[in-house]
Design a binder for these strands. Sequence first.
DNA 1: ATGGTAGGTACCCTA
Length: 268
Amino acid sequence: MRILTWNINSVRLRINLLGELLSTESPDVVCLQETKTPDEHFPLDAIRDFGYEHVAFHGMKGYNGVAILSKYPLDEIKTYDRCGKSDCRHISARFQPDANKAPITVHNLYIPAGGYEPDPVLNDKFQHKLDFVAELTEWFPANQNASDSIIALGDMNIAPLEQDVWSHKQMLNVVSHTPIELELFDKFFNSMNWVDAMRHFIPAEEKLFSWWSYRAKDWTKANRGRRLDHVWVTKPLEDSLKACSVLREARSWDRPSDHVPVIIDFAS
DNA sequence: ATGGTAGGTACCCTA
């Protein structure tokens, strides 16, 4: 089973890139963030033509939006309001790649970026981000069972480890790597005894990025990236983790997203 | 030290 997560930054603008990606990588399940389209304009026919018959999506005009595309049937499709807002940042669904194994529930998340000023008193968007992570930290153990096969993934907009940013020291006051975010994120990570599927394969001492700003003159030269995208699994799935790949080359595609796709392969 | 780009939308917001 191959799962792929990608902050696509407009599914309608990048529908052709998505088609090429799916035909090259052949993931079984695909989670998209920042689809930026209301459900009535979601490109469902194109995605079915790519070979993904089972699709769950939750979008709004202009901002945010999450979607799950699958070669397996999806059931238990659910969408969630978070922090009292209906802003289309969380969708989940269940599928069963192997009839002899337990079904897998995937939670596709788009955690708020949090704005520029890293002070929750001065910046409502930063407060919203902190509240969102705190809410997930309470919600998962209260509503999901860590002994089930669960994947939580997506654009979490936090780079937790020192080697998840280009400079730990220079990033400590930059939203996505501030101590308050790192502490909250650690609590979220511990809430279900999650396994970090990317770092399961790539040592914590090695730099690993999934996002590079659009604003850099030459993103490859500066290489000031961050690992904002994550794939976490519950313990029952740990032994079936098989491989991870971060499609860095996608950042050089024509009209790229600022995030690149992350793939996790599971045995069977 | 500062400003730089991108997408969607409607003349500005978010990232």
